[in-house]
Design a protein around this nucleic acid. Structure first.
Length: 781
RNA sequence: GGGCCCAUAGUCGAAUGGUUAAGACGCUACCUUGACAUGGUAGAGAUUCGCGGUUCGAUCCCGCGUGGGCCCACCA
C-alpha cells in the first residue's frame, strides 16, 4: 500500500538502498552495451553545494539516468578539484603560518572534511555517479599524472621557463595573487612631458609614473591619430635622452592626455600587453623591495621618492601637471600598492598551437552551438602563453629543475610523483647543481586532464576504450578556462584527439530578484535549506524546468512549489489506480479490446514518449519535463481518470473495466519510466511498492513509442470540448461537477460515434442526450 | 571598450512569416464531486522594448536605438 503522502523518508530509504545495492555501478566487464562516458566536472571543494551545483549536476544526472535506460553502459565518475588559494586562506586562518610540508598536510585534512560534506549533499540530491571512480586532484596518483603530462609537454617544447611580470607587494616582499588584490581609488598627477622627435620637434607625452622613464622602451599612438602618424616606425628621444621606437596601437586612447604615451616595463598591466605585442625589451626598474634600479641617479630610491626626484631633474621639460583620479591595485592585507616585477615563471605554449586548438574544438559537438564562439574569440585574441606556475603551497609541484645559470630540466619519470623537498637534485652542464622548482601548478593545469584521468591515461588499452569522453558538461562561464585548457592539454598536447564528442553548457542560477547570488547582497538560497522544505525530486524538477542551456535564470519558489504539486499529483494518481485495481495492478496481461478513449490516452502517451525521447537526446530537459507534465496532469489526471471512473467503479468485472485496468497500468507504468531520470525516488517507489517489482526502475528500459492513434485523438478532442462546455455550465450554475443533468442537446457538424455518446452520458452524468446536425454547440435543457 | 546572449501579462517563461499569442505562479469566483483543497472548474490580465526596412502579411527575418546579463579588457 502506498502511504498517504510522499515524503523525504521515502527518498532517504531509496538513497540508502541504491548505495547498498550498487544500483549505479558501471559494469566494467560488460562489452556488449555501448559505452557512455561522462567527464563530470570536479567541483572545487568548498564544503558547500550551491544552487549552481544543483542545476549543473542535475543535468548530468538526468543524462546519465536516461542513457542507462536507453541501453548504454554509463561510466559516470566524480572527482574533486581540491587545490587552491581559498583553502590556503582558510587553513592559514585556522593554523597560522606553518612550514610547507605541514601546511600542505593541514590543507589535505581540511579538504577531506569538505569533500565528506559535499558528498553527503550530492547523495541527498540523488545524484548517481559511481563513487568507486572518485578522484581528487590532491592525490599523489593525480599529481603523478599531472607531472607526467608536463614532462611530456616539456619534451615537446610546449613547456618552458621565461621572465614574466607578477604582482609583487614591496612591503611583504612576496608575490601576490590576483585574488589578493583590491582596487583603490587614489589621487595622482598626470604629468605632461616633452620628448624629442626625429627632427628635434617637441613631442608631448602624458604619464602618471615619470619615475619609470628610465624603463621606457617605446612610445605609442593610436593608428587613427593624424597628429602622430608620421612618427610610425621612427625613433624618438625621451626626456632623459634615451632613444626609443614609435609604434601605433589600437589600444591607445586618442583623447587621453596628449594621445601619445610611453610604454615602461612595467607601469601597469597594459604595458605587459604592449611588451608582448610589439616585442619590446624588458628593463627591470624596480627591485623586490620597491626600490629603483637600472635607473641611474634614481637608483636606491623608493618609488615615491623617485617620482619627486625625476620631476626635479626634468625641470621645464614637464610643462603641465593635472590631477588624476586613478585606480591602483593594492595588496588586500596591507593596502600597499603592488608593482609588476619580472620573475621567472613556467609557461605552456598557446600561441603556436592556437590553430590546433581551434581545429579540435570544431570537431566537438557544442550544445548550444554558439558556445564555441566563446572559445574561438579567446583563442584568436590570445597574445601570450599560459603562465602555469604559481608561488603557492597547496598545489601540484612542477616537476622541473633549474640552475643558477638559467638552464632547466624535467624530472625523470622515475622521480614521480615529484615533491621538491624530497628531490635528489641534478647536475647541470655548467658544473653547478640544479635545484628543484618549488612553484606549484595553476589549478587549471590539474583540471585540464580530467578526460585523461578518467580514461586511465597513460594506459593505452584503457585509453582506447574510454577516450574521448562522450560528454563534457560544464558552465558556460568557464569555456575560456576549463574547456579551452582541456582541449589544449588533453587534446592538442597529449593525444592529438578531441577530448570529448559533445560539450554541454549550462547557465547559472540567479537570485529570485534576477541578480547574482552573493553574500554581500544576502540573497543566497542554499540547497540545504530547500531540502528541509521540499523533496529532492521537486528540486530536481525545478532544475529540469530551469530553462534553456547556457542561459541564466532566476530561482523561483513558485517553480519549486509547482514541482512539488506535480509530485503530489503523480502520487495521488497512483493511489487512485492502486485503490481502483488492487492486486490487478501487477497483472501482466495481453492487450484486451480497447475503447476509443483508451486508445486516445495510449496515443497521447506514445506521442509524449516520442517527444520526451527526442528532447532527452538533445539535452532539452525543460521540454521533456513540461511535455510529460502536460500529458500526465492535463490528459491523464484531468480527463482520462475522470472518464474511466464509472467503468472502474460500476462495471464489476466487465470488459470495460478490464480495458481500463490494462490502460491505466500501461500509462502509469510508462509515465514512471519517463519520470525516472527527473524524479528517481518517486519513480522507484512506485515501481517497487505499486508494481511490486524487485529490480530497480533505473535498470529498466526506456519506453518505445507505439501508435499515436490520430483518429481516436481527434474524436476524443471533440469529446473533451463537449465535456468542458458542460463543466462550464455546471460552474456557472453553481452546481457540483458530479451533479446530474436532465437533458443535453449536442449540435455537431459531423456527428459522433454511439460509443462515445454513451461514454459522454456517463462521464457528464446526463440523463437524456440528444444530437442534431449543425454548427458545434452544447445546450443544457 | 571588445565578444557573445537576451528583451513576450504583475512575475517566470513557451511558440509561430498567416484564425483567438501556450503554460506556470500570483489574482477573482464557484465547487468539501468515492486519488488529490498540495485539489477541481471557470474568469480577469499582452500595443510581443522603441524606430525604420523586407513582405500581401512581422512578435518571428534584417538594420539602428534603448535596456539587461555573462565572459574578457581597462586608461598610460
Amino acid at each position: 500500500m502506498l502511504q498517504q503522502r510522499y515524503d523525504r523518508a521515502i527518498e532517504e530509504k531509496w538513497q540508502k538502498r541504491w548505495e547498498t545495492e550498487g544500483t549505479y555501478r558501471f559494469d566494467d566487464k560488460n562489452t556488449s552495451r555501448p559505452l557512455y562516458t561522462i567527464d563530470t566536472p570536479p567541483p572545487f571543494t568548498s564544503g558547500e553545494l550551491h544552487m549552481g551545483h544543483v542545476l549543473s549536476y542535475s543535468y548530468i544526472d538526468f543524462t546519465a539516468r536516461y542513457k542507462r535506460m536507453a541501453g548504454f553502459n554509463v561510466y559516470y565518475p566524480q572527482g574533486w578539484d581540491t587545490q587552491g588559494f581559498p583553502t590556503e586562506v582558510k587553513v592559514e586562518k585556522k593554523y597560522g603560518r606553518l612550514n610547507p610540508v605541514e601546511f600542505r598536510q593541514k590543507c589535505v585534512e581540511w579538504t577531506v572534511d569538505m569533500i565528506a560534506r559535499m558528498k553527503t549533499q550530492m547523495k541527498e540530491m540523488g545524484f548517481s555517479p559511481d563513487w568507486r571512480y572518485e578522484y581528487k586532484t590532491m592525490d599523489s596518483e593525480y599529481h603523478r599524472k599531472v607531472q607526467l603530462s608536463l614532462i611530456r609537454m616539456y619534451g615537446d617544447k610546449l613547456v618552458y621557463r621565461d621572465k614574466y611580470p607578477v604582482f609583487w607587494c614591496p612591503r611583504c616582499g612576496s608575490a601576490v595573487a590576483k585574488a589578493e588584490l583590491d582596487d583603490e581609488e587614489k589621487a595622482g598627477t598626470l604629468n605632461y612631458i616633452n620628448f624629442t622627435g626625429p627632427n628635434g620637434e617637441k613631442l608631448p607625452i602624458a604619464t602618471s609614473r615619470p619615475e619609470l622613464m628610465t624603463a621606457c622602451v617605446a612610445v605609442l599612438f593610436n593608428p587613427e591619430d593624424a597628429r602622430y602618424r608620421h612618427l610610425e616606425g621612427k625613433t624618438v628621444t625621451t626626456a632623459l635622452g634615451k632613444q626609443v621606437p614609435v609604434f601605433s596601437d589600437k589600444d591607445v586612447e586618442k583623447e587621453f592626455g596628449t594621445g601619445l604615451l610611453m610604454v615602461c616595463t612595467f607601469g601597469d598591466k597594459m604595458d605587459v600587453v604592449w611588451l608582448h605585442r610589439h616585442k619590446l625589451p624588458l628593463i627591470e626598474a624596480i627591485d623586490r623591495h620597491g626600490r629603483m634600479q637600472n635607473s641611474g641617479e634614481l637608483n636606491g630610491l623608493k618609488v615615491e621618492e623617485a617620482r619627486k626626484k625625476v620631476i626635479e631633474i626634468l625641470g621645464e621639460k614637464v610643462f603641465k601637471k593635472e590631477p588624476l583620479r586613478q585606480t591602483v591595485k593594492v595588496h588586500d592585507r596591507c593596502r600597499t600598492p603592488v608593482e609588476l616585477i619580472p620573475s621567472l615563471q613556467w609557461f605552456a605554449d598557446i600561441r603556436t598551437t592556437a590553430k590546433h586548438i581551434k581545429a579540435l574544438a570544431e570537431k566537438v559537438r557544442w550544445v548550444p552551438d554558439f558556445g564555441i564562439s566563446y572559445l574561438i574569440d579567446w583563442v584568436e585574441g590570445a597574445e601570450w602563453d599560459w603562465v602555469i606556475s604559481r608561488q603557492r603551497v597547496f598545489g601540484t609541484p612542477l616537476p622541473f629543475y633549474a640552475c643558477e645559470c638559467g638552464a632547466t630540466a624535467a624530472a625523470g619519470e622515475d622521480e614521480l610523483p615529484f615533491y621538491p623537498e624530497k628531490a635528489k637534485g641534478k647536475a647541470c652542464g655548467c658544473g653547478k647543481r640544479m635545484v628543484a622548482e618549488t612553484s606549484t601548478c595553476d589549478c587549471w593545469v590539474d583540471s585540464s586532464i580530467t578526460p585523461l584521468i578518467i580514461a586511465g591515461w597513460p594506459d593505452e588499452k584503457k585509453m582506447e576504450r574510454f577516450y574521448p569522453s562522450s560528454l563534457r558538461p560544464q558552465g558556460v562561464e568557464i569555456v575560456r578556462t576549463w574547456a579551452f585548457y582541456t582541449i589544449y592539454r588533453s587534446g592538442v598536447a597529449l593525444t592529438g584527439m578531441p577530448p570529448w564528442e559533445t560539450i554541454l553548457l549550462n547557465g547559472n542560477v540567479l537570485a529570485p530578484d534576477g541578480k547574482k547570488m552573493s553574500k554581500s547582497l544576502g540573497n543566497i538560497i542554499s540547497p540545504a535549506e530547500l531540502l528541509r522544505d521540499y523533496p529532492t525530486d521537486a528540486i530536481r524538477q525545478w532544475a529540469a524546468l530551469s530553462g534553456a542551456m547556457a542561459k541564466d535564470r532566476p530561482f523561483s519558489y513558485e517553480d519549486i512549489k509547482h514541482a512539488k504539486s506535480f509530485l503530489a499529483k503523480v502520487w495521488n494518481a497512483a493511489r487512485f489506480v492502486e485503490n481502483a485495481l488492487k492486486d490487478e495492478i501487477r497483472a501482466e496481461t495481453a492487450e484486451p479490446e480497447l475503447s476509443t478513449i483508451d486508445r486516445w490516452i495510449i496515443g497521447r502517451l506514445n506521442t509524449t514518449i516520442k517527444q520526451c525521447t527526442e528532447h532527452m537526446e538533445r539535452f532539452e530537459f525543460h521540454y521533456a519535463m513540461s511535455k510529460l507534465q502536460a500529458f500526465f496532469w492535463g490528459d491523464l489526471c484531468d480527463n482520462y481518470l475522470e472518464y474511466v471512473k464509472h467503468r472502474v467503479y460500476e462495471d464489476g468485472n466487465g470488459a470495460g473495466r478490464a480495458a481500463a485496468a490494462y490502460t491505466l497500468r500501461k500509462v502509469l507504468n510508462d509515465s514512471m519510466l519517463l519520470l525516472a531520470p527527473f524524479a528517481p525516488h518517486m519513480a522507484e517507489e512506485l515501481n517497487g511498492e505499486l508494481f511490486s517489482r524487485k529490480t530497480s526502475i533505473h535498470h529498466a528500459q526506456w519506453p518505445e513509442a507505439g501508435p499515436e492513434y490520430a483518429d481516436e485523438v481527434a474524436k476524443v478532442t471533440l469529446l473533451n470540448a463537449i465535456v468542458s462546455e458542460l463543466r462550464q455550465h455546471k460552474a456557472r450554475n453553481r452546481l457540483a461537477q458530479n451533479a446530474e443533468l436532465a437533458k443535453v442537446r449536442l449540435s455537431l457538424p459531423q456527428g459522433m460515434d454511439a460509443e462515445l455518446l454513451s461514454e459522454l452520458q456517463k462521464i457528464s452524468k446526463i440523463k437524456e442526450l440528444e444530437t442534431v446536425k449543425g454548427e458545434f454547440g452544447v445546450s443544457v435543457l
